[in-house]
Structures are given as C-alpha cells and as structure tokens.
Design a protein around this nucleic acid. Structure first.
Lengths: 343, 343
DNA sequence: CTCGGATATGACAACGTTGTCCAGGGCCTA
DNA sequence: TAGGCCCTGGACAACGTTGTCATATCCGAG
C-alpha cells in the first residue's frame, strides 16, 4: 500500500488555500485571513472553528501570494565571496541575527570572486524583490545595480567599495591595518620584509599593499620587487612565492601575509623552514593563539552586524546621503611578529 | 538638488511591470512575457522594441508573481545550527553549489541549537514554498513537518536523524568514528581515557558517547563516571571538565573530544598542562596538522553535497522509499593521538 | 482565387493573498 | 420601539505574472 501520492496535478502538491479553509470552517475567505494574521474583529468561537480547519487541512499561508499583495518580502540578500571561508561564516551569521531581529530571512550566495556570477546572483535576488542587499563586491563596476537601487532596493556594500555607484559601504581599514602590521615588523628590527597578497584587482588587496609600501617608505626602506608577490591565494602559488623569498643570498627575514588563506599557507611553509622567520598575517585564524601567530584582526561579526544595521536603518526610512563606515583593525601580538631577524 | 525620491507611494518603489513595458513598446502584455522568458514566436523586430522598453524602464521581472503562477520557487532552504561554525560553512557552500547547478537559490537559517527556533525557521521556509528543505535537526520531534512533506516539500535531514518522521537522511558515522578514535588511544597504551562531549540530547553526541563506551568495553576497560563529561560546548564548561579529569590521584592519560569546539578548548587546556596528554578530536580543524592534533575527520562538504544531490533527485521525481545514507569518517593521525600515557 | 495551415500577437482568466467597502445583526439609548 | 452605533463577516478587486485560447496575418498549393 505504499503507492499513491505524487501524481497530483496541481502545484504545491495540492496545498489547501484559505478558500479551502474558509469552506471547511463555514466562514468567508477574509475571515480566515484575519485569523491567520491575528487581525482583530473575529469572535473567539469563529476563530476556533477556523483554527480547527487550518489544523485539519494542514494549511500554511502562501507567502508568495502575500508578498505579491504586500510588496515586502521580509528577506534580504547577502552576496559574498565564499561561505566556506572562515571569515565569511561569522559575518553571515551576524547579518542573519540582525535580519532575524527584524523578522527577515537571509538568502545568501557565493560569487566565487567572479564578477559575472556576482551580477547574476544580485539580479536574481532583485527579481525576488528582496527588501535589501548586502554585497561583498567581486567586480568593480556596479552600475548594473542602478535601476534596482533607484527602484528602492536598499543596498550596502561591504569589505570593498562599490564600483561607479553611490551607496552605503562598510569597510575595514585595510590600509591602516597593513601599515601597522608592517611597522610592527620594522620595529622589531626587520628591513627585508616580504609581502604576499591577493590579486591587486581586489580593493582590499590593493589597500593592504599600499599600507605595506607606506610603512616601508616611512621606515626609509626601499622595497625590492622580489619582496612582493601578488596573485591568487591558491596554496601552490603562495607556497612558491614564499619559498622564493626565503631563498637566495638576501632572503627576507619577515613576511606579511595579505589575508587568512595566505597566512595559513605561509605558516605551513615556515613550519618546514629551519630559520625563524617573523610573520604577521591579515585576518585572525582559529587557533592562531596556540600557534603564536601575530595578526591584524578584523572583527567579521562586527562588520556583518554593522552592515546589516545600516541596511535596516535604510529600510526603516533613513534618508541621509550614502555613508562610508570604516572599522578599525587591531594588532594582536602573539609571538610570530615579535621574532627578531634571523641571522 | 539632492532631494526627491523615496516618497513613492506604491510598493516596490514604483517598479515598472510588464504592462508598462508593453505600453511603451506598443505591444501586448503577453508578448513582453514571451520576450522576457525567451519563448519562441516573436519577430526579431518586435523583440527589439520590447528589449528597448525594458532597458529604458529598468524593468525586472517580479519573481513573486511568477512563483504564484508557476508554483515553483527555485529555491531551497537549509536550516543548520550555526553558520559561523567552521563545520557548517563548507557544508552550506557545497549545498549552494549543487543548488546553483539546478538553478536554485539557497536560503539559510541558523537554529542556534534551539528546537523552537528550528521549527519557526522551517515553517517560515515552508510558507515561502521553498521547493526543498535540508535540515540539521536541533529538536527531536519533527512531526510538525508532516503536512509540509505530504504537501510536497522534499526534505532531507542531515547529520542527525529526523524525529518521528519518515524522511531521507544523510549522516556521518559518529558511532564508528568515535569508537575508532578511542580504540586508537587504547592501542597506544591508554586505559584511563576521558570523554568530553556535547549535550546527550543531540544525536551525534549520543552516538559518539556510545562509540566511546563500546571501544572501552571492547578493550575490557570499565569506564569510571569521572571520565565522562557531557554538556554544552561552552569553553568555560569544557575547560572545567578537562581540568577536573586531569587533576586528582588518578588522572586520565588521554582525552577524546566530542566535536570541533570541544577540541579547540581542550587543546588550549593541554597547552597549559605540563604533562603530555594524548588527544583525539572528532571533526577536523583548520591548522590541526600544524598543531599535530589527531582527529576523526568527516568531510563537511561531502555531507552537504550528498544531501543536496538527494534532495534534487527527489525534486526531479525520484519516488523510492526514504533512504538513510551514512558517510564514513576517517582517522587522521597527527601526533596527539599517538602519545603514550604520561607517567 | 481560395483554402489550409503555419506564425505572430493579444485578450482574458487564474494563481492565493490582502485591502476596501458594505451588509447584517445585536445592543444601547432616547 | 425607533434610531444609531459597533461589531462581525463576506464580496470583490487588485497585486504581476503565465497558460489558454482566439484572432489576425501571411504564405503557398491547388
């Protein structure tokens, strides 16, 4: 007898509608709506009958229809680079918590750092009429969002600035953080300091590189080309870059890693290295305290929370000019950044 | 001149509809629909006119209305415990990739291990008529999902079995993994082995505890009550538990940590400890290789991918009885689990 | 020249909900 | 008892899209 079902011809597998509930309870359609939405003006007795019918039929309101009528989806979209990256998990969770406090659901998507995929995702979210968008840009041209923003989809850009579009942004102080980290190495006696970063088309990567250069210049050090490596954060490439810098007659005595993925690979390389090389990494990492890795820490959860709060302030009607918030980073000394230059 | 806007009275901030596009292009409503959906039967010339109108007005199809008509949302819901947990990031990302391959978006929510919040989230997703659901259960009674499942929302439970409901499940072999890990410690000469786990109402926690007991019994060891600690994974509690087990006249010589959060805290405690205590943890952790932590590893991405593939197979019409898949775990020896008992 | 048939297009209903508005009935007051 | 008011409940339109079906147009064959 384990057959039947699944040959239903109607959508939603024949879900009951308010009309069905109304028929069963012997009341009008609108009365069901009132009960479902907790609106006043229904006698306890009627309400009970309606509730029973709802229960019996397994009715659940169809939010698609509701949205169509009301014009608000109570959902926001978050487009980031990669949910699997330990930096974005807490960020996303923080956004979710704020959304929840405002009764909204969160739809997220990973752009995989691909501008085209970013656009595709963002526009899909717009088609669903999310109330707001939080975007960690992969591309650098967001003019495609102009009609959407004009049409009322509140948008906040995070971590990297929006391209060619005027909107709210929440950033971390990449420049200042990198500068501080490199200066920290300088203060511990290093002069030949390597920098391994992400692709320079990424804003944060560029800013961190700039921080590195500024700190070096401030210290009166001329940066040699071989000390800088930019490109993908693919472990193989980072490993090769690090090994190159550590070889040769004049190897670097310290490294600055441009983000968490770079740091992880560099730590692995250094673990196999006989000399003691100093290291400061951008972004904190779980267990970095136990490994004694000095980092420039940015609070991912705070970034997410700030962005989401901005977003909902907009949704609640805030009407000021687009703002740009920059969150400070924090140097967390744990040992690796305080090593003196190896002989 | 930076005023105006934002006083629009209509919903969606006055977004143009197909009707508007039709009027502007001088064609019928349905023709616009055809163009937007790439349906055949439109002259190139007409299509061009419609495209221009779309461009000029900044039209974007309203998917809410579309969903109402078509009955499919092309979105799936994922309810997990905490997106910020490094175990769930990759899992969620894997689900997203599969969804993307099927043209669906992913809505996720964190239950924070609260059954009530789980139910609230799940039902909100059902109200939005997600096509399918992937749930990492917080509660142990999912009968509330019965009407939804009956109504056609495909559901796959992950990591922990569903409560009192017949549905697809994708689990890791918690029992076998824990048993293997504890046996590994036994094989290295340990007999007084502590177990620190999560709340026993969580299925995986219970299974891992069972694996521990089985391995101990298999080795002919009688477990003392003081060797086992179950409860929240709050660092303070775990720390206290570990410290207690390591104190006293007959301290444990090895610890088995029930999940990644417990492991992290235990590693911290052991780092402050003068004796060398062996450790095996359930779940892998970033950089665990560098710290030499032996773990029972489960592939979060594989779990997510498997679950999502099951889900879409259902959505594509698979009609077999609910299946239960159990994924194997893998012991990864890295040093901490191979330490001999301290004197 | 006519007819069959393909092709392009539009009119209209329907999806399930909510907002507006009106009707009926009970109750209070004058 | 009439008049008015409040309270409850229902009929109906609208939200923006898609499916169905009818119509207009055009082509080629007979």
């Amino acid at each position: 007898m384990a057959m039947t079902a699944r040959h239903s011809e109607s959508r939603y597998g024949n879900r009951p509608t308010m009309k069905d509930v109304a028929a069963r309870a012997g009341v009008g359609l609108k009365t069901v709506s009132r009960v479902v939405n907790g609106e006043p003006g229904v006698t306890p007795d009627t309400e009970r009958r309606v509730q029973e019918a709802i229960e019996a039929l397994g009715f659940r309101r169809n939010d698609s229809a509701r949205v169509l009528r009301k014009g608000r989806t109570s959902s926001i979209g978050l487009v980031l680079e990669d949910l699997a990256d330990p930096f974005y998990g807490p960020l996303s969770r923080a956004v979710e918590e704020v959304a929840r406090a405002h009764g909204a659901l969160l739809i997220n998507g990973s752009s995989a750092e691909d501008p085209e995929r970013e656009q595709e995702l963002v526009l899909a979210l717009c088609a669903r009429r999310v109330d707001g968008l939080i975007v960690i840009p992969a591309g650098d041209d967001h003019r495609y969002l102009e009609p959407e923003i004009k049409a009322g989809i509140a948008t906040v850009f995070v971590d990297r600035p929006a391209g060619r579009v005027d909107a709210d942004m929440v950033l971390s102080d990449s420049f200042g953080g990198a500068r501080e980290g490199v200066a920290h190495l300088v203060a511990h006696g290093h002069r030949r300091i390597g920098f391994i970063g992400d692709q320079p088309r990424i804003h944060t990567a560029k800013e961190r590189l700039r921080g590195y250069h500024t700190a070096m210049t401030d210290a009166g050090i001329t940066v040699e080309d071989s000390w800088v490596s930019l490109g993908s954060t693919d472990p193989a490439r980072v490993r090769a870059a690090a090994e190159t810098m550590l070889r040769g007659p004049e190897p670097v005595t310290a490294l600055f890693a441009g983000n968490n993925r770079v740091t992880v690979t560099v730590v692995r390389v250094l673990a196999e290295c006989d000399r003691r090389i100093a290291l400061v990494g951008f972004d904190d990492i779980e267990l970095a305290d136990l490994l004694g890795i000095t980092v420039i820490s940015q609070d991912a959860a705070a970034v997410g929370r700030t962005a989401a709060e901005h977003l909902f302030r907009r949704l609640d009607g805030a009407d000021h000019a687009p703002a740009r918030v920059e969150l400070a980073t924090r140097l967390v000394p744990r040992g690796s950044g305080e090593l003196p230059p190896a002989a």
